[in-house]
Design a protein around this nucleic acid. Structure first.
Length: 562
RNA sequence: GCCUCCGUAGCUCAGUCGGAUAGAGCAGCAGCCUUCUAAGCUGACGGUCGUGCGUUCGAGCCGCACCGGGGGUACCA
């Protein structure tokens, strides 16, 4: 572990707000139990009760298809079941009305009073209103980026960086104690090639007729570094060892990577050096224990891991015949190290090109006697910009820095989060460059700036924020905005549960849209109607907190003016 | 060959456990600024959800086969 950067404190989460879907689920659950008992329904398995937002306002705000699911089990008509369930629903302050529609949906309308009552709660709790405690304070690690210091970060790595950092934010919001970790290797073949590449570039700058080999790093950045080296050291390194160049390049590349990450608002807690696993003997310790457990054998001078025992078609090499381990072995040792440090949830954010190493790691720690269920893969597919694929080795890439120079960190982060990470991402440079409503980042940020502007103006003109009569908030747009705001906690939980941070950007856009509709229909500041102004000011303030929370979880700024 | 991810509107993509009429942004079309930021809003247009079988009361979602694309299939990482 190289360094331990301080990062901003995670938000406390102590207040578990009563959120809508879990509450409705509980109501239906109670009704179901009552009906099942009364009519002796055979519910051998626990029924999964789904509550989803209604697709049409005529059905209220939330619906459940539970009666349709139960039709077969009970041999009754869905519509009858729904009516029966409705009759047994416990009363709740949250629910205004319940009705049944064909073919048997149970529809809920949320009470306006209950909704309004959430406003003071959010105002007093702040951004942590939407937190939950699903993680129960357990230790979680998100390992991401993990690029070896052989070159500037590519756009592809940037996706892993954004997805990993955002997912870490999400885990904190659902109550985990999160560590962000970067795993790297500064020994071995890659670093030797890097050193050779720099050496050749350095000599080229000095006018020598030397050329890069096919395996060397072709990127222009090493030529630039060579020039820098000449400027600093002159010709003194003409006969220097490769190691001198390797070390110099490594430090320079790491500085550049860290600067890039910082620019993207990413701060690692731990930089973990793969080499430490060799130095403390844990790599060889892993081999010995696997061997003692009967999980290895020797063939052709190499040590093989019996992965076929876990149902894989081929065994894998752990230690090459020359005695050098493959990447697989330190990876297993590394994950054992993570488990030994007490992490109960371990998330590896990997690119699609590294996906296949993941199962080997899980099999490895299982063979060592651990339960690997807490280790998860968050794979992200490749990124392309204008059809060009990234390849560091070939030196034909757009670096993250170049991309941020073009469009800014906020746009990069938001765009990287707009796709399911298992889908390919085509970075639309033209759209990203658009400083207008076409660009979804500006759309969301604009809503926040608009809100800020109203609140500023209210303050300047002396409008009261206190003692609001929130029952005055009766417009459909007001209700819709509140409902959308209250959805955030569910969105965050879903992101965590599904390892899918992209839902956040969709939510942010929906919330911005709900605010814009409110802005259109409901004038906030009206000197002729001060009570209504105060009520709407409170709602506006809550919208600001929610929008900022969604943006900040994405690692995107929430500007006060634009 | 095998494994895996993807295939949804002209383009880029969402689609919560299998539920009501499949959604959004962009592009293109038609409108809305003496009032809190028009970086906004409204309307219309746009679909054999890759193809074919199957399971189901009900399939974009589940199963099988096929087609097309990405990634992997190393004693590289």
């Amino acid at each position: 572990m190289l360094s331990n950067k301080p990062r901003c404190a995670s938000l406390p989460n102590y207040l578990l707000m009563q959120s809508i879907i879990p509450t409705l689920t509980e109501l239906v659950e109670n009704a179901l139990q009552a009906c099942a008992q009364k009519h002796a329904w055979q519910l051998e398995q626990p029924i999964n009760i789904a509550i989803s937002p209604a697709k049409n306002p005529q059905w209220g705000e939330f619906s459940s298809a539970i009666a349709l699911q139960l039709a077969k089990l009970t041999a009754k008509k869905p519509i009858d079941i729904a009516n029966e369930l409705m009759a047994h629903l416990p009363a709740s302050e949250m629910v205004q009305t319940v009705n049944v529609s064909v073919p048997g949906f149970l529809n809920f309308s949320i009470s306006q009073n209950w909704l309004s009552a959430q406003i003071p709660q959010i105002l007093s709790t702040g951004a942590s209103y939407w937190n939950s405690n699903d993680g129960q304070g357990k230790k979680a690690m998100v390992e991401f980026v993990s690029a070896n210091p052989t070159g500037p970060l590519s756009v592809g790595r940037g996706r892993g960086g954004v997805v990993g950092d955002t997912f870490a934010n999400i885990l904190q919001a659902v109550g985990y104690d999160v560590t962000r970790e970067y795993y790297f290797n500064n020994a071995g073949n890659q670093m030797r090639l890097l050193g050779e590449s720099l050496q050749i570039r350095y000599l080229q700058v000095l006018g020598e007729a030397v050329e890069l080999g096919e395996n060397h790093y072709q990127g222009e950045y090493l030529f630039e570094l060579g020039k820098r080296l000449v400027a600093e050291k002159g010709e003194s390194l003409r006969t220097a060892e490769v190691e001198t160049f390797s070390k110099y390049a490594e430090l320079a590349m790491f500085d550049s990577i860290k600067a890039t990450l910082e620019r993207m608002n990413i701060y690692m807690d731990v930089y973990f050096n793969e080499n430490s696993l060799f130095e403390d003997g844990s790599v060889w310790d892993v081999v010995n224990r696997l061997t003692a457990g009967g999980f290895t054998y020797e063939k052709d001078g190499a040590i093989w891991f019996v992965t076929t025992r876990f149902g894989v078609e081929k065994d894998r090499v752990l230690v090459r015949s020359q005695g050098v381990p493959t990447y697989r072995l330190p990876d297993i040792a590394y994950h054992e190290n993570k488990l030994r440090r007490g992490f109960e949830l371990i998330v590896d954010v990997l690119g699609a090109d590294h996906k296949d190493e993941f199962p080997d790691v899980k099999m490895g720690v299982e063979a060592l006697g651990y339960n690997a269920d807490g280790i998860h893969l968050l794979m992200n597919q490749f990124v392309s910009v204008k059809g060009q694929r990234m390849s560091t080795r070939a030196g034909r890439f757009t670096t993250l820095d170049e991309l941020m120079d073009e469009v800014g960190a906020d746009v990069v982060r938001f765009f990287m989060l707009q796709r399911d990470s298992s889908s390919h991402l085509e970075f639309d440079l033209d759209l990203a460059l658009e400083q207008s409503e076409k660009n979804p980042v500006f759309y969301v940020q604009y809503a926040h700036a608009r809100i800020s502007s109203i609140l500023r103006k209210a303050q300047e003109e002396g409008y009261s924020f206190e003692n609001a009569d929130l029952a005055l908030l009766a417009e459909p747009a007001e209700k819709a905005l509140l409902l959308k705001l209250l959805e955030l906690s569910e969105v965050v939980r879903m992101c965590a549960k599904e390892f899918a941070p992209h839902h956040l950007t969709y939510y942010a856009r929906d919330l911005a849209s709900a605010f814009h509709a409110f802005y259109r229909d409901c004038r906030v500041l009206d000197s002729q109607n001060l009570p209504l102004s105060t009520a709407r000011l409170q709602l506006t303030a809550v919208a600001q907190i929610g929008l900022a929370r969604a943006l900040h979880l994405c690692g995107v700024s929430a500007p006060e003016t634009m």
